[in-house]
Design a protein around this nucleic acid. Sequence first.
DNA 1: ATACAAATAGATAATCATTATTTGTTACCC
DNA 2: GGGTAACAAATAATGATTATCTATTTGTAT
Lengths: 150, 150
Amino acid sequence: MKTRLKSKEVTALLREHGFKVTPQRLAVYDVLAHTTAHPNAETIYQELQPYYPTMSLATVYKALAILCEVGLAQELNLGEEAFRYDANTSHHPHVRCTCCGRVDDIMGNLSSEAMEQQAAVETGYAITDHQYYFFGICPECQKAGKGEKH
Amino acid sequence: MKTRLKSKEVTALLREHGFKVTPQRLAVYDVLAHTTAHPNAETIYQELQPYYPTMSLATVYKALAILCEVGLAQELNLGEEAFRYDANTSHHPHVRCTCCGRVDDIMGNLSSEAMEQQAAVETGYAITDHQYYFFGICPECQKAGKGEKH
DNA sequence: ATACAAATAGATAATCATTATTTGTTACCC
DNA sequence: GGGTAACAAATAATGATTATCTATTTGTAT
């Protein structure tokens, strides 16, 4: 797992890539590193508002872009209106509840290497990356007997 | 394969779902059914311009939404700025060339049932759907020795 | 064939996530 | 500590998609 790096390590990584270290960037990373809720930019912005009331949404976006560039975060696209972000940069699948919209990780091994290999053989592509997304009803929504919403 | 239904079958499906059959909707389906390029709304619009010069982009969007609703097309989200559409409504993975941006199908069996099952066990979700996307360099771009672009 | 009611197409404006721009401020190498 | 390049904040711009509004077209019953 690559989550929750110490501030020192984050600082070092940013400097390595020629970016300056700012409180805003550390704060955005901190939010990401302490949640598994895969928030989007707006949510991160809301969460930081009480502590950084002058920070603008654009700054959150720029911080996220930089965190992704230096390998401290990844951008998730689950077919929603907005991107989500994840401080766990390993290539794991995600599950999205079609009822409440929450997104969870799948950290177990789904033999993705074999799938990449088969995809390569079938298409002739040199596969460099993949995204596997699952959709379904989360345990809480099943318990609540709720139907499909999102 | 569910591609290239005859116009009669498309007509029937639309009526079954309470939609009226219009030349515009048939034309949009026709474009989708005769390509494997997974075009987006704008591309479909451009393609139809010569034949339907008065059709607006909004009409293309509405036609695509209806085609998806009646099961004649599916919406693809490959992390690009716009959605792509596919008249092959089976749940197959796609490969996107990170060099030229083209998107191809993977129709072979990647044992997705097993993966869905494992995801269900690990997360407790009732899995209802999934999207697997691969990214890589397509054969043509490999041949051309082109680097990563998109 | 004709007419009528409901749905649609086209034109255009609105929306909303994200990105660019501008300008004053801050981090950090010296 | 000072100078400079990078930055944050505010704001405008962008671009895909959706909503609105009205004239037209479709499906159907005469």
